[in-house]
Design a protein around this nucleic acid. Structure first.
Lengths: 132, 132
DNA sequence: AAATTTATAGCAACAATGTTGCATTAACGA
DNA sequence: TCGTTAATGCAACATTGTTGCTATAAATTT
C-alpha cells in the first residue's frame, strides 16, 4: 500500500467523525463540515478510512451508507463488529449501540461482514412522543 | 384500502417468489420472469406485496432491496422478522435463514423493522472452495 | 530552497437503483 | 355490456455512489 498523505480534507473529516456520536451519511457530513469538500472526495476519503480501519461503514435499511469512527475497543476482526445499529425513523439518525448480537449459523457459512440495523423510534424521540 | 385486482403480472411475480428459495432483487426477478414486465410495474407490485404482507423486503449490505415471499410461519409482527439474512459475496444470492437473532436494547428504543444481514461465503460456495 | 514524485482533490460524466406523474389498458362489479 | 378505477407502461426524474481525467499539493530527493 502506498503511504497516505496528511491533508486538510482528511483531517476535517476524521475530526468530524470523532466528534459525532452518531454515524453519518454523506449528506450529514457535507452539512456539518466547516469547509466545502467535494462529494467525490468525501466518498474517497471515507472509503480510505474504512480500508485503513479508521472508520466503519454501515449500510442501513434505507439502503444508504453511514460512517462512524472506530471507537477504542472497535477491533476489526469480524466478531467485534457484531454490534447493533439503530436508525431512528423520526430523527433519521443512525447510532452505533454497544450491545452485541447473538445468533447461530448453519454449518458451512463463513461471515465476513455483519450488518445489524434495526429501525424504529430512538430513545430521545420516543421520550418526546410521550411528552405530548 | 381499495381492493386488489388479480392480474397476470402479479400472479407471475408471486409465483416466482414462492418458487424461489432465495430472496430476489429486481434484476433477478426481471431475468427469471417468463414474460417481460416493466421495471416500474415490478417495483410497484413488490411494494404492494410488502404492504399486504405477501412478501418481505430485505435491504442487504450492498444497499439493494431483495424480496422474498413470506413463508408459512412468517408472521408480520416485528418480532417474527428477527431472522437472519445472508448475502453470499461469491454467488451473490441472498438467503433467508430461519435462525433467530438475540440482542438486548437500551431503554426507550422502539423497534419497527429488523434488518440483520450477514455477508460472506454461503455453504455451497465454501464447499466449492474447499473442493479446489 | 528548488525540483521531483505521486497521492489527493475536484470536476464532469456515468451507473445503478428506485420513484413519481400521467396517459392507457384491463379487471371487476353493477 | 358498460362504467369505474386499479394496474400497467412510458418518460422523466431523484438519489446515491463510482470512474476517468486533470490539477493541486504533500512529502521526498537533490
Amino acid at each position: 500500500m502506498s503511504s497516505r498523505r496528511r491533508t486538510e480534507a482528511q483531517t476535517q473529516l476524521l475530526d468530524l467523525l470523532r466528534r459525532e456520536s452518531t454515524a453519518l451519511s454523506h449528506d450529514d457530513i457535507s452539512a456539518k463540515l466547516p469547509t466545502d469538500i467535494n462529494r467525490v472526495t468525501i466518498y474517497r476519503i471515507l472509503n480510505r478510512f474504512v480500508a485503513d480501519g479508521l472508520a466503519h461503514r454501515i449500510v442501513a435499511d434505507d439502503g444508504r451508507q453511514y460512517f462512524a469512527s472506530c471507537a477504542d475497543g472497535c477491533a476489526h476482526d469480524t466478531a467485534a463488529h457484531g454490534h447493533l445499529h439503530f436508525r431512528c425513523l423520526v430523527c433519521d439518525r443512525v447510532e452505533c449501540l454497544p450491545e452485541q448480537v447473538a445468533f447461530s449459523l448453519p454449518e458451512g457459512y463463513r461471515v465476513e461482514n455483519y450488518n445489524v440495523t434495526l429501525s424504529g423510534t430512538c430513545n430521545s424521540c420516543s421520550a418526546l412522543a410521550e411528552a405530548n
